[in-house]
Design a protein around this nucleic acid. Structure first.
Lengths: 142, 142
DNA sequence: CGCCGAACGTTAGCCGGTGAATGATTAGCC
DNA sequence: GGCTAATCATTCACCGGCTAACGTTCGGCG
């Protein structure tokens, strides 16, 4: 069991578990916050656009949007100019989650990296970015 | 979108995608390799033991074991002494995957960290371990 | 103008993961 | 010895993610 893969995977799982627990207090599930983040920035985007921005497939967005619509966080509306398109619009409830959820995420980041000095934090990001680039290249070509 | 959380999440997703693609060549799905790794080390363990070792819930093991049994990688047998227990035993097919899968994983680790010097690799592990510990503490207490 | 292909959202089915409820079996205590 | 409580595995329903198949709607070309 290679060291980096194991450690990276474990860390990711723990982080996801914490994020999930905190999102649950706002009635959200893991991943839905990313979708919301995009809509907070700009309303009325299409599932395809959102999927591309999140590096996720369209069905993932559609299913999530259906659940979030049922939860009253957003509404679906067809585009009048191009009837193939569907646009997602936030409700007041969806908009209201912005501040607390963004704050939660900032706090989580701060708590996780609290044990690192400024130089260490910077270095961690630098090294992780290297690995990420290697992964992206392997995924594309290798 | 905090820097570390975002970068770490992206990296994990890319790594998982690569691992999934490579496991698929052996007829495995993501996560099944971890279960196999435990059984390669020691056969005849119970779902509960495996779940605890992998830090996963028991239903996850049960479902995976069902699929892997259907794929001919392992067999289920009830313990004769304690009839509540179920023990998972590898088939020859399951054992045969050991070398290629372990080799794949070692190679993936090497490829991902190829761009790092020895000092950098060590430092990355050290810093990531710090974050992991912080996450574990948050998960337990905070 | 009509057809045919491209673009798009949706659905269905699978996978790993979770929590909650079920059922069987053992262990412990009176 | 018998009843109760703890311990297992299993099942069900849900979530995010994926691929593949489907149906609609628009665009371009003859």
């Amino acid at each position: 069991m290679p060291e980096f893969l194991d450690l990276h995977g474990r860390t990711n799982k723990a982080v996801r578990a914490i994020a999930d627990a905190r999102l649950r207090r706002h009635g959200l599930h893991l991943g839905q916050d990313h979708l919301l983040a995009l809509l907070w920035e700009q309303d009325g985007r299409t599932p395809g656009e959102l999927a591309a921005a999140l590096d996720v497939t369209t069905p993932t967005i559609v299913k999530g949007a259906t659940r979030m619509a049922a939860a009253g966080l957003l509404t679906r509306r067809r585009d009048q100019q191009d009837n193939r398109l569907v646009r997602l619009w936030l409700t007041d409830a969806g908009r209201a989650l912005r501040k607390p959820v963004e704050e939660d995420r900032r706090r989580l980041e701060a708590e996780l990296t609290a044990g690192l000095g400024d130089g260490e934090r910077e270095q961690l990001l630098r090294l992780l970015a290297k690995v990420h680039q290697a992964a992206a290249e392997l995924l594309a070509g290798g």
